[in-house]
Amino acid sequence: MSAPSCNDRALLNDWHVVADCLALTLDVPFTTRLMGVDLIVTRSVLDTRIVRADTGHRVCSEGRYGFVWACLGKPERDPFYVRESDEIDRHLLSGGSIAVNVSGLRLVENFLDMGHFPFVHTGWLGEEPHTEVLPYNVTVTEEDEILATECKFYQPIASPTAQQGMLVDYTYKVIRPYTVALYKSNPVHPTRMDVIVLFVQPVDEDNCVAHSYLCYLKDGMEAAAVRSFMQLIFAQDKPILENQVPKRLPLDPRAETPIRADIVSIKYRRWLGERAITYGAIPLHVASSAGVNGRMEG
């Protein structure tokens, strides 16, 4: 069964992670799918080769941060540069690639949401009665990234090494439609941030793979503990994400009812619409015409 392919130029000409190098066995082909196109990734001693399963044509590939990247079209820019990857006092590791049966845009939006912490990550990233999301700032940077700053949330166990609950400072950055980063104050060095970058692979419009890249300060932190904490948290989100209806992200502001805590997701949906991203989304005009033709209103 072939999935409908992607027509969004910005996505076709961009880089996407398609595999974690750790998961590849030398000379054993690994099959995956990117935006509806089946790909065969083969890693050899010399290089990593990615070909389309349908045409056999080679697609652009690149290795970075321990991941294999693919671009189906003509790359217009480099993969996002993670500045913290140059800092030698950090663990730089994959958190493990996990497939999720939902649009990758939903995954990005969930990553941006603090409101669910006490309910989905109970006892870890939040707990009742500390449910209020305090006001925070959202701007779009000169690099055309969405930046949410001054996010604060009370977390019982904020990190693999946390000994007690603390008010944690967060900064979120949406870098590309399917790439989002979280900067979180480090418990040992409060002036520095631990970084989690989520590279989301749009498998098709209703499926994605979350490839997380963890840049944590090594001081007092074991690599295995960082990875295990990431997976513990992520696996709590997974069933919630997979039960979201619809699986694609609606860009019509009236499709779902946001509250004040959701201003970053409102911004994200608008930003996607303005950049004509439709893959994994329910675009505005489709949603509103369905409203007129397909549903009884009010």
């Binding site: 750790l22 998961a23 493990g96 690639s97 295995a224 990875r227 295990s228």
Partner: peptide, 10 residues
């Protein structure tokens, strides 16, 4: 003792 089952295959 946490064992890095995935992706570490410990």
């Amino acid at each position: 003792v946490p064992v890095d089952f995935y992706p570490g295959r410990e």
